[in-house]
């Protein structure tokens, strides 16, 4: 580990031309570098715009387009698009456009909540496990393996059928299932990071474990964490839709895209297309948008890592 570092690599061309950061200081400020790289990426722009549109539609939409999503109006059931209902109504007489907004709201809320919860828990768990190492690390990772070995959907179905689910409950359940992969990702990252010399330098100065983990390891693992959080949003939305599609989602009158799909499928052969395609399209669009963003984030953060 002594002589293998080739000299010419060190004084590489990127920095060679600018003595003492003569480059514009803004270039490397905070997340400025990756943010700029991200916005240059076409997929990232597409993903961000789509997410913004969906969010706007779900959260700001109801302010302008008020509908009653609580009372059943069987007299207004299964109206085709037109008149006062741009996308028609469903079997319960709910306005489909309004219901799409309400359903999207719970989907997005769930997606973000799960992403944040799993990221925080998973990151800390993984970082601690990787940093401590040894037997503790092995034990902590076996716990993760055990959880991963349980088929998630089956567990969810059992839990949901035992307890009547609320949005909060489903968030909790999904979080319990999906903190595992960020934990493993972060642990892997930390295993390589902790051998880096800056981590050793902090330990040598007398830095405590929590300090090393929080100040050095977690910020440097942030790249993988952010990317995985983005994908978690998409995965959770899909998972909620799956549950709802199986009839085990949020109980009525709560709305979500999965339940709308199930309801619509019953009438597909009747030609009631407006009950199926709009929620399906929105679902696909949202999931694709988050995946686009996740991919682009991955690239952008990677570039930064290469540059440093």
């Amino acid at each position: 580990m002594t002589a293998t570092d080739p000299a010419p690599l060190a004084e590489g061309p990127p920095a060679a031309g600018s003595p003492t950061g003569a480059r514009t200081p803004a270039a490397g400020r905070g997340l400025g570098g990756p943010a700029v790289a991200l916005l240059r990426n076409r997929r990232a722009r597409a993903g961000l715009v789509l997410i913004a549109l969906v969010a706007l539609f779900c959260f700001a939409g109801p302010l302008f387009y008020r509908t009653d999503q609580v009372t059943v109006h069987l007299d207004l059931a299964e109206l085709p698009p037109g008149g006062g209902h741009p996308l028609g109504t469903d079997a319960n007489g709910y306005d489909v456009l309004g219901r799409l907004m309400a359903g999207g709201r719970s989907s997005l809320e769930l997606g973000f909540a799960v992403a944040v919860a799993t990221t925080v828990v998973g990151t800390l768990y993984g970082a601690f496990s990787g940093y401590v190492g040894g037997v503790t690390d092995s034990l902590m990772m076996r716990v993760v393996d055990t959880f991963l070995a349980v088929p998630g959907l089956v567990l969810l179905l059992i839990m949901v059928s035992m307890f009547s689910p609320s949005l909060g409950g489903i968030i909790l359940l999904l979080s319990l299932l999906s903190w595992l992969s960020p934990a493993r990702l972060v642990r892997g990252e930390v295993l390589t990071l902790r051998t880096r010399e800056f981590v050793q330098a902090a330990r040598m100065m007398g830095g405590t474990g929590p300090r090393v983990v929080l100040r050095h390891l977690v910020p440097n693992a942030a790249g993988v964490v952010i990317v995985s959080a983005t994908f978690t949003v998409a995965d959770s939305i899909l998972m909620l839709s799956t549950l709802s599609f199986l009839g085990l989602g949020l109980p009525p009158p709560n709305a979500d895209w999965g339940t709308m799909l199930t309801g619509g499928l019953d009438f597909l052969y009747d030609g009631y297309w407006w009950l199926v395609y709009p929620p399906a399209a929105l679902l696909v669009l949202t999931v694709v948008a988050f995946n686009l963003l996740g991919d682009a984030l991955h690239d952008a953060l990677d570039v930064r890592l290469k540059r440093t």
Partner: peptide, 13 residues
């Protein structure tokens, strides 16, 4: 201690 590799001895973040 002063380390060998000036690229990994300083926290990039």
């Amino acid at each position: 201690m002063v380390f060998q590799d000036p690229f990994s001895s300083l926290d990039p973040r």
